[in-house]
């Protein structure tokens, strides 16, 4: 049996999540030994046709053409794994979903008629069946390696689903909210970054999106009533890289 065939696809995104694979300086050559990198245009001009065993998908769907393209990728792929906040939540560009896209186009481009774009930026799972969603803006490269390893060995990825708050306790960081009164989304945000921001003396701003059953309403009320955070700033915290994910979406809508 040949090596599993890996493909890496890009939609609307910053390239950072697929760069994570090239940032695995110590592991890249081992990965290239374990899989056949069949399609990865950012890294190779040898673009092999499908089918592929595993497809990594970066970016969100923002054009009619891309909405078609992702269906073809699904047909060509054994497993589809979305990597990063754009692919799993619509990304920062999903802020258009709350606004008038025609006005956005006029604001940026002199000749709006040259631009064809959908009114929304949506996650991949809104369009096709997705086998696994890896979160983060950007993703954690060690979690990416774990996920690839799991899929080529036909096991479940070991990616913890608890909150950033738990990661903070595990590394022994002093709570930035309790000790310094900083607004922090740690209790409602999916783990994966290793609770980075609190270890740099700042509150979490939600790069990994909402965890399961996140009680954003309670946290937001506490931030407003006990910490004196302005509604506008509570909205800004929820409406950034994972703005279109519930419950960040509606929590942000309740403030501002």
């Amino acid at each position: 049996m040949g090596k599993p065939r890996l493909a890496v696809w890009k939609f609307a995104s910053c390239d950072g999540c697929q760069l994570s694979l090239l940032d695995c300086e110590d592991e890249l050559l081992a990965v290239a030994g374990a899989v056949e990198i069949a399609y990865f245009p950012e890294a190779s001009s040898d673009m092999q046709p499908g089918p592929y065993d595993v497809s990594l998908v970066e970016g969100s769907i923002t054009t009619a053409h891309d909405a078609e393209r992702i269906r073809e990728i699904r047909r060509q792929s054994g497993a589809v794994i979305t990597i990063g906040a754009c692919a799993t939540a619509g990304g920062i560009q999903a802020l258009r979903n709350f606004a008038d896209v025609e006005e956005f186009t006029r604001a940026v481009y002199a000749t709006p008629s040259f631009i064809s774009t959908l009114d929304t930026s949506t996650p991949i799972a809104d369009h096709i069946r997705v086998d696994f969603e890896l979160r983060g803006c950007p993703i954690n490269k060690h979690q990416l390696l774990e996920t690839i390893n799991a899929f080529i060995n036909r096991r479940r990825p070991n990616i913890p689903a608890h909150s950033v708050c738990v990661e903070c306790k595990r590394r022994g960081t002093v709570c930035v909210t309790v000790a310094r009164g900083a607004a922090c989304l740690g209790p409602v945000t999916h783990a994966g970054c290793g609770a980075l921001c609190p270890s740099y003396d700042r509150g979490c701003f939600g790069c990994y999106g909402p965890k399961e059953l996140a009680n954003t309403e309670s946290l937001a009320a506490w931030a407003r009533d006990k910490l004196g955070v302005a509604d506008k700033d509570i909205q800004r915290l929820h409406h950034n890289f994972n703005a279109w994910s519930e419950p960040f979406r509606s929590e942000g809508d309740r403030h501002g």
Partner: peptide, 27 residues
Amino acid sequence: PPRFFEALLRGRSFLEAPDITARICGI
């Protein structure tokens, strides 16, 4: 595909600009 950063920055705080504009490019 366009991502409209210059439009979506309007109304955000000046303090958010480094975190938001970083997302233009992962490299």
